[in-house]
């Protein structure tokens, strides 16, 4: 399983390189045909490159720290048995803290379900994992500004909680009743 995933990832990376080379060749060709656009294109590319390179290495380092210091087993252990507001809060937090691609979060969530975690918490955990990552939010802050970032983050948190409760109602209405007692 792990081996095949690694192979798949390698294939993806090779594909990305091919995409890059193809688009670079295409751009060079276009620029040869339309030399008057050279300054606009080069300036935009250079600017975005500089903006990314001053922040991305630091963000990746932070992602590395989170991955090492917040082990997944700890997350499963703590989330498996909590419910109510505390469960929602922990699901959000533990979704936002550890890092890794979404496909790591699916087996984790499956483990959580088998440990008896509530559906609402699983959905909140998964969604937080997908879109509320602390290092990533710093990148959003830099490129889209504090108002955009804060507003989108706040709205996402609210809606993700609502969605979790809503999906739980549909999937297992009885469990919610039990949870309320």
């Amino acid at each position: 399983m792990k081996q095949s995933q690694k192979l798949k990832q390698r294939k993806e990376i090779i594909k990305s390189w091919l995409f890059f080379v193809a688009s670079l060749a295409f751009t060079i060709l276009l620029l040869l045909i339309f030399p008057d656009r050279q300054t606009a294109v080069l300036k935009s590319s250079w600017q975005i490159f500089m903006e990314m390179i001053v922040i991305l290495p630091a963000v990746m380092l932070l992602i590395g720290f989170f991955a090492v210091w917040v082990p997944n087993e700890m997350v499963v252990k703590l989330l498996g048995k909590t419910s109510g507001i505390k469960g929602i809060g922990l699901s959000l937090l533990f979704g936002a803290l550890p890092t890794g691609p979404l496909y790591i979060a699916f087996p984790l969530s499956a483990a959580l379900i088998s440990k008896g975690a509530r559906v609402s918490n699983i959905v909140i955990f998964l969604s937080a994992w997908a879109c509320i990552k602390i290092p990533q939010e710093m990148v959003e802050l830099q490129f889209l500004g504090v108002r955009f970032m804060a507003l989108r983050l706040g709205l996402t948190i609210i809606f993700v909680i609502i969605m979790g409760v809503f999906i739980e109602q549909i999937v297992e209405p009885k469990a919610t009743q039990k949870g309320k007692k």
């Binding site: 995409f19 294109v41 590319s45 490159f49």
Partner: peptide, 15 residues
């Protein structure tokens, strides 16, 4: 590779 791809695409997009 994705980062470099974005650099090129942004150049194309804005230029």
């Amino acid at each position: 590779p994705t980062l470099l791809l974005i650099v090129v695409l942004v150049g194309l997009l804005l230029g």
